[in-house]
Design a protein around this nucleic acid. Structure first.
Length: 103
DNA sequence: ACGGTGACTAACC
DNA sequence: CGGTTAGCCACCG
C-alpha cells in the first residue's frame, strides 16, 4: 500500500514540518537532523510526495530560498504567515534565516 | 538486489 | 557572491 506506517521515515518528516509554527521556517537539513537523519535529500522526496498535506512552504533550503520549483508559491504563503523576508535588488525574495529559523 | 533519481548541503575555487 | 564537485540517504522501477 502507498499509505505510510506510523514509524515510517515520511511520517516523522511530516510530523516535524507540522510542528513548525507560523512565521518561522526550518531548512531541510534541520528537519532531517530533527528526526535523527542526515538526509536532507530524503526529506525533499517526502515533501514531493506528501508535502501537499503539510506546511511545505515552511521548509526551505539552507540558502534561505524556498523549495525549487515552488518559490513563488512559497513566498505568498510565507508572507501570509508573517515570515520575515529579505528582498534582493533583482527581486529575489528569500527568508531571513537569522530571524525565522526555528531554535 | 541494483541503479538511478531527487522540493539538499557543505566544501572548494 | 556564484558556479562546480562530491557526499549523502531514502524511494521507485
Amino acid at each position: 500500500m502507498s499509505e505510510p506506517a506510523a514509524d515510517d521515515f515520511a511520517s516523522r518528516v511530516l510530523d516535524v514540518v507540522e510542528s513548525i509554527p507560523a512565521g518561522m521556517v526550518m531548512t531541510y537539513g534541520d528537519v532531517a537532523a530533527a528526526i535523527g537523519s542526515r538526509a536532507p535529500r530524503a526529506v525533499g522526496q517526502v515533501m514531493a510526495r506528501f508535502g501537499s498535506e503539510v506546511a511545505w512552504w515552511r521548509v526551505i533550503r539552507s540558502s534561505g530560498l524556498p523549495a525549487a520549483g515552488h518559490e513563488a508559491r512559497a513566498i505568498e504563503l510565507l508572507t501570509a504567515d508573517g515570515t520575515p523576508l529579505t528582498t534582493g535588488a533583482d527581486g529575489a525574495v528569500r527568508v531571513d534565516l537569522a530571524a525565522a529559523r526555528v531554535r
